[in-house]
Each structure stands twice: as structure tokens, then as C-alpha cells.
Amino acid sequence: MKVLISVDMEGISGIVHPAETNPDCYDYQQGRALMTAEANAVIAGVLDAEPAAEVWVADAHGPFRNLLPEDLDRRARLIRGKPRPLGMLAGLDEHTDAVMLIGYHARAGGGPAVLAHTMSDAILDVRVGGRSLGEIGLNAAMAGHLGVPVVLLSGDGTACAELTDLAPSAVTVAVKQALGQTAAVAVHPEEARERLRTAAAKAIEQRALVAPFALTGPLEVEIDLYGPHMVDLATLVPGVSRAGGGRKVTFTASDYADAYRLVLLLVQLASIRP
């Protein structure tokens, strides 16, 4: 079997501030080490349950170059760097049996939640078929499009609730409880790793109980952007148009895979400053 572990950073135990997730800040090296250790715990749990599993790990935070390659469990394959197909879910294909979202955070507007956002600070909301989705929902739906369930998620309590709403049978591990955007009560990192290893094994053993979260097309997608100039750039893409004022764009996708890829493109365009 093939398991894809997508690892973000904001939902790692102990991390509460952008300085711990930003390569230009002094706390980042500690954040990288904590992130790598939690990834290793999940890899170990998967292989406890399925020793012959093929484990792929997608570095899914910021520059996609955060996990420490030399410290990652050598039994896993590491995907790092960008740009790349499917972004945070690089490595996902029709041969994947299960996806795990580790260190994930709640969507923009969700809360209280640690470092909540959706893809970037430029995105205020993404609605697919009228349903607001953050990175958890957007990635779960991409996996679901290929018939793959998200069987495990870790992060703060709000992030865990987001996945439970989409996939009630999935396993979640709350490694911290948010007090606000940059504050939380966290379990000790070693305790978090123990819980993750146990949960990963359980998620693999119970994966047949989790239904993929799938959205069927055609799909109407609306994106609220932070700045009007971002809308100007977005509407240069064929099929994308303004809607309802100066900060919203919309488009129709034939299926979810097309919707997902276009959302990723618009996120990149939104990072361009005039």
C-alpha cells in the first residue's frame, strides 16, 4: 500500500508564532526540528501497522523546504521544493491508498485557531459550491477526487474539527488547544509524537471506514482576496471574473481537479505586489 503524509508547520505541537515557521526568523530552526520529529512519529506509526507500506512524505509548508532530510526516517521518500504538481499533495495519485495531514491549521476566519489562514494571507476565503474550505478541505477534496480518504489529521482542536466535519470517521490528534491566533496550550512534543505514532497505526488499520470527501463537478468557485490589485491579476486568467465588488473573483471548473489547480495558481498570482 502507498501512504502520502503531507506535513505543514503551523499545527505542530509547541508552534504558535510566525517566527517559528518563517525561514528568515531566529525560531525557525527549532520549528523545523519539531516538524521533522512529528513526521517521523507518523511514519513509524504507519509502518507499525503495515511494515511493507510505501510511505511518501510531502513537505507542505511555505517554501516546501522545511523538513530536515538527514533527520527524516530513511524508510520514507521525501518530496520537497516548488513549484510542483498538486502543491501540498505532491505525490498523490490513483495508486495512493491513504492521505495523512500532519501539522495542519484551520482555515482563514476559523477560530480561535493557531496561525489560521488559507494558502496565504492574501486569501480571505475560498468557497467551492458555496462551502467555505481551508487547506484541510481543499486538500481532502483533491484526495477524494481520486478516491483517496484522508484518514488522519493533527493540529489544534479547531483544525481537527474541520476534518471531522468532512470525514467523521477519520482519526484526529489535537496536539494543542488555541487560545488565539498566536497562543495555545500545547502538549509536550514527546507526548505529541507518542500520540501521533499510535494514531497513525490506528488510522491505517481503520482506513476502510473512512469515506473520501469528494465534490462532483461542474463546480462554482468563489475566492475573496485581500487586495483589489490581486483581483486585477486574477482576472487575467481566462475564465476568471470579478464578482460582487472589488475583492471577489469567481470561476466554474468542470471537475474538482481543475478547480484545485486554478486555486493554486490564483494563490501564486496573489503574492505578486504592484
Score class of each variant (00 low, 15 high):
L89S: 03
A90H: 14
G91A: 01
G91V: 06
G91Y: 00
L92E: 10
L92F: 13
D93A: 00
H95W: 06
T96A: 03
D97F: 08
D97R: 13
A98W: 14
V99P: 01
V99N: 07
M100I: 10
M100S: 06
L101I: 05
L101D: 07
I102P: 05
I102K: 08
G103Y: 08
Y104N: 05
Y104F: 07
Y104D: 00
Y104P: 04
Y104S: 14
A106I: 04
A106M: 06
A108P: 06
A108I: 10
G109H: 15
G111N: 01
G111I: 06
P112G: 08
P112F: 10
A113I: 06
V114W: 14
V114A: 11
L115H: 11
A116Y: 11
A116W: 02
A116P: 13
H117L: 02
T118D: 04
S120H: 13
A122L: 01
I123D: 08
L124A: 12
L124Q: 08
R127F: 06
V128Y: 03
V128S: 09
V128F: 08
G130M: 06
G130R: 01
R131I: 15
R131H: 13
L133G: 00
E135M: 10
G137N: 02
G137A: 00
L138V: 15
L138T: 01
L138R: 05
A140G: 02
A140C: 10
A140W: 02
A141E: 02
A141D: 13
M142G: 02
A143P: 03
G144N: 14
H145L: 00
H145V: 07
H145P: 10
H145F: 15
H145E: 10
L146V: 03
V150I: 12
V150Y: 12
V151D: 04
L152H: 02
L152K: 09
L153C: 09
S154H: 03
D156T: 02
G157W: 11
G157N: 12
T158H: 05
T158Y: 02
C160A: 10
E162L: 05
E162W: 02
E162I: 02
L163K: 15
L163S: 06
T164E: 04
D165G: 13
D165S: 04
D165Y: 14
L166S: 00
A167F: 05
P168I: 12
P168W: 09
P168D: 12
P168F: 01
S169T: 09
S169H: 15
A170F: 11
A170R: 07
V171S: 07
T172Y: 02
T172K: 01
T172W: 01
A174H: 02
V175L: 00
V175R: 11
K176L: 09
K176G: 09
Q177M: 15
A178Y: 04
L179G: 13
L179T: 15
L179Q: 13
L179N: 13
G180H: 01
Q181G: 08
Q181R: 08
T182L: 10
T182R: 03
A183F: 12
A184C: 07
V185E: 12
V185G: 13
A186M: 08
A186S: 14
